[in-house]
Amino acid sequence: MLNFLKSTVGRKYIMGITGLVWMGFILGHMAGNMLIFLGPEAFNSYGHSIVSNKILLYGTEIALILAIIGHVTSAISLTLENRAAKGTRYAVMPKGEKASTWASRNMGAQGSAILAFIILHLITFKYGAHYETTVNGVVMRDLHKLVLEVFMKPGYVAWYVVCLLLLLFHLSHGAHSVFQSFGILERKMQAPLKKIAWAYAAVVAGGFLSQPIYVFLVNR
């Protein structure tokens, strides 16, 4: 199995599995955060219920950290090898079907920006200002207040929008490539899978985008 994990094919399986872990997480994260539309009590209670469940919290954190380490290390080694394998580039770039998509050519750059975003995102929220509030007699962290504060800053909202658009492309490529990497692609699945991948990417990115835009424009 060690040879498998070292091979180009095996590392693509690692990219796929670790990518799927994060794809599942961000879908759940986006859906949970939609509670911001229901007001501070629902949003804060949801956050409190997650941090109260230590097994879920630490289990998810460990899975996500391991997944991102696997994803990033495989990505770096594959990208370096791919560049070395190509060597000289062509003077003329192809067009149409023979061209690669912008998303597929820039997975590394998108991924780097998204990684920077994740780190900054954790600093801003998880390790950010600690406000407290009381909901139904329970004292809990007032994340809603922090989210509102942060999403009032035009600079942060702009950075958020840019990163989510990059995420849209990153997911659109990853979500369909994973089927090929895992070898569960059949002739009839090719076209629908690309559409499903885009739909998934649009739901995640669109859902996440709606939150800061709602706060910034409506909830002033």
Binding site: T8, L78, N82, K86, Q180
Partner: peptide, 12 residues
């Protein structure tokens, strides 16, 4: 040789 990124350029 490099790894496959599923661009589909080969098949096209």
């Amino acid at each position: 040789f490099g790894a496959c990124t599923t661009t589909g350029a080969c098949s096209a």
